[in-house]
């Protein structure tokens, strides 16, 4: 990171290579839009570059960049909510139904989408997408990205106890949704 702060493009490229997949995965699990998740992951790196001199060595770099990515993803959800708010009655129905708007996979390449949906992982991904965002984000950071509870608390800006209870609740909700799907399939 010191080289990045000094303006080394090669060092910045290494940084991008190291974190790009994790960043896009996190954003994708929020918004389920492959192309937009790529845009936002790139935007997170641009922000890191813009504010590289602000990086505090006392904190973990991963925490900093994940926080930027999470905030961008949340902004994207809010933007989609605003659009749907005026455009769609389905959105209201979704809200009343308890699932989150702004997470339908509309622009992921059809082949990728089909591949994911054709497997159990597609069912799991759909179930995650149906969780309310406060539970989804905690679950993704813990069970998919494998981050520590303390780091998740820092990224989301909430107390560690709240992170733990949200993750616990999210797992139970996810289990119920998967169970519901299994019953439907049978």
């Amino acid at each position: 990171m010191d080289h990045v702060v000094a303006g080394s493009e090669a060092a910045f490229a290494t940084l991008v290579d190291r974190y790009k997949n994790r960043l896009q995965n996190i954003v994708y699990r929020y918004i389920r839009d492959f192309q937009r998740s790529e845009d936002l992951a790139q935007e997170a790196f641009v922000r890191v570059y813009l504010h590289r001199e602000r990086y505090r060595k006392t904190g973990k770099f991963s925490t900093w960049i994940f926080t930027i990515a999470v905030n961008l993803a949340k902004n994207e959800i809010r933007r989609k909510v605003r659009l749907r708010d005026v455009l769609s009655l389905d959105y209201i129905a979704e809200m009343l139904g308890g699932s989150d708007p702004g997470i339908k996979d509309e622009s992921q390449p059809a082949a990728d989408r089909q591949a994911e949906r054709g497997q159990t992982s597609g069912v799991v991904a759909d179930a995650i997408a149906k969780l309310p965002v406060v539970y989804r984000e905690a679950l993704v950071l813990r069970d998919i990205e494998g981050l520590a509870y303390e780091e998740i608390a820092e990224i989301l800006g909430i107390p560690g106890g709240t992170v733990r209870s949200r993750i616990n609740r999210a797992r139970i909700m996810l289990k119920d949704k998967l169970k519901g799907f299994a019953k439907t399939e049978l």
Partner: peptide
């Protein structure tokens, strides 16, 4: 099941596009 979810891979041009933007 969560731990078995496949990881997305960014496109090959991703890094170069970020550098171009900066």
């Amino acid at each position: 099941e969560l731990s078995r979810l496949p990881r997305l891979e960014t496109r090959a041009e991703f890094t170069e596009e970020v550098l171009a933007r900066t």
